[in-house]
Nucleic acid binder design. Structure first.
Lengths: 197, 197
DNA sequence: AATAAAATAACACAACTGTATTAATAAATC
DNA sequence: GATTTATTAATACAGTTGTGTTATTTTATT
């Protein structure tokens, strides 16, 4: 009877348009009208998929973490633990255009999360998720390299986690000072200094 | 002839009021009217000190880095290099209310800097300044601990710098997961793992 | 006390915001 | 082809925004 469109695809299309607006003009310019124009839709049409702006923004933030998770889950390990760990950790660095977009948008949302409970909750959830993920990798590395038996798993995990986010921020904010290869080099340097002794 | 007020003091008062609004309601709520209300002034009065909103925001961001620099410069070293380095690096972590305020506000401005050339320039300047500062400390530590002769100064500097900013972000965003003492503990752990071998 | 200038306040204006309401369009079934 | 309904578009409205203009208040000098 009606014109049928894939609801979820349309929602993702709007979310990606939201990303573009945020990246180009900033989160405070991500108004319904600007997003609608970017997506080539009318404001009224958008309300069919998101009854409120907060919903759209929350969905757009969620989509970032979903995309990263998807890539992590579809990754097939090579068997070389160090290489594999390096590979998945690089998923969290802005090493190419796709990842840069995601990181910049995530950064903008993270900042807003400080004063927005809904976004705050999502941010916390992702923090726990990523920390658990990194902790697992640290444990595997410690187990493999017998010399690491005296390492503190908790401290090593938070150290590695903070290092990654710090590198990501620096690479995003000042790409002319920290290019992807350098960020990657620091990460390799860090892992080797701990697990290759 | 006129009523004379200390221009700079008044500007700082407005900037600090801006901080409060940003911290409580977010940067997008930092309108002239809201800031004026927070400072107990009229919008017209503000325009006497800042002819535009951008000026006020840029000044408010600058004031954050000024405050941190002031504290760093007024610090008198104890002589114990490791202790002193730890102390100054903790100036960049949200370990108390004053520093938390500054970090949160700085974080908000940093996010906006991605789409605001003026703030971007300030952010870059501070990045270079801090990196130079940290590099100096790393060199001193390497020099003192002879075992560190094989360390790469550049990599160690960016690693430490990223670690600090990463810890700061985590402590700001999720204070219930990373309390100040833990952030400090990670920093100590990092420094000792490199320079106490 | 008079005055000149600095500081403050009040109001106006056009542009933008989120959202609600209403009308028009499109497509899948009968 | 008519009809039903999901989808899209258009308009309206109250609230907020930055900024410009104008008037008022305050105070240090004469």
């Amino acid at each position: 009877m009606p014109k049928i469109v894939d609801h979820n695809k349309q929602k993702e299309k709007l979310a990606v348009a939201t990303w573009r607006v945020i990246r180009r003009d900033g989160l405070e310019r991500a108004s319904l009208r600007n997003i609608a124009k970017e997506a080539g839709l009318s404001v009224g049409s958008m309300r069919h998929y998101f009854s409120t702006q907060s919903e759209l923004l929350a969905f757009s933030m969620q989509l970032v973490s979903d995309r990263v998770c998807d890539r992590l889950q579809s990754f097939v390990p090579s068997g070389n633990l160090m290489e594999d760990v390096l590979h998945v950790l690089c998923e969290m660095l802005p090493i190419d255009e796709e990842r840069s977009t995601e990181m910049e948008v995530w950064f903008a949302f993270t900042s807003k999360a400080l004063v927005d409970p809904t976004l705050q909750a999502l941010s916390l959830y992702v923090y726990d998720d990523m920390k658990g993920f990194i902790a697992k990798k640290v444990e595997q590395l410690i187990e493999q390299h017998s010399a690491g038996s005296r390492l503190d798993v908790n401290l090593e995990t938070e150290r590695l986690f903070a290092l990654i986010d710090g590198l990501a921020i620096h690479a995003i904010m000042h790409p002319e000072r920290l290019v992807p290869e350098q960020a990657r080099a620091v990460l390799i340097y860090h892992l080797q200094s701990i697990f290759k002794l």
